[in-house]
Amino acid sequence: MKRRMDNAIHHLREAGILFRSNLFSNLMSLLSTTLVFLFLAMILAGWRTTGHWVGLIRSGAEIQIFHRIADVSSTAAIVDPGVLSKEISRIPGVEAVIFVNAEEARKRMTELLGGESDALAQFGENPFRPFLEARIRLEDMNAVLSAISSLDGVESIRDNRSILEMLIGLENALRVLGLALGIAVGIFTFVLLSHIIRTGVIHNREQIRTLRLLGAPEFHIAFPFFLLGLFVSAGGALLAAGLVSGGISLFWMKMASPLPFLPLPAPQTLQAGLFGILGGIGVLLGLLGTASGLLSARNGGDEGYFR
């Protein structure tokens, strides 16, 4: 046990010596991996945020139905919202219908605008109209909209389909961008680490050769290189996750007050997800890149006939 602990400390020290032996280059490599992981972290945060919005809209797909109301200039019959509400609730895909009167509509907007609601006081009369609000199943949206439009007394329908479609488009774009960037980050980090480790092996080939001649297991020789690879890759990833997490905390704090109607996902969940995903990718790439560097140095080594 004591020897294992001693060896663990030794491997950490050796990894530190390896890092310091090419300090500037390794620092630049750490900075590079941090930067590429930073881009990935931002895309991931954007993807998860838009995904959150899409989820919210999908879970509560509501439409507003504006019906004909009393109008002195019109001879059209006044529509009874109660009757219309019953007709709408019979349409397949409609889950609930409620009547929102003008006063309730004004109250909702006042809550939504928060500190900016003073602007509503400029209006002498209540500028809002009563309407019917229906909660519908998203997958039936087209059929429901078509059925409601054909009902007598319906003037217009306001749905959030365009916003939803835009958000879904944005989410898809960010997903594709995230995947593309993930692949790019993967290739970049893999190649970078492979090169760093190969260079490290070449710089230390005499020491490695000596250890081989003394019968050291390959694992013993390779371990400090794996630690170096993990430090550059996972270290860069976690540093990027930390930076973006800090940015999220700051951004969320700034956004909460001016945009109260923009429901953002819980920052802690987002931050924990970033650390988990980026840390995992960093560790995986660290191991793969190091293994590749060690293998390429071994296969392309100058030992030739000697074993």
Binding site: E206, R212, L213, L214, G215, P217, R307
Partner: peptide
């Protein structure tokens, strides 16, 4: 070979020290 080398104490002309 590794197993064998662990039982051998090589001493080299060029020392092979780090």
């Amino acid at each position: 070979i590794r197993k064998l080398r662990r039982k051998v104490g090589p001493v080299f002309q060029e020392f092979r020290l780090t």
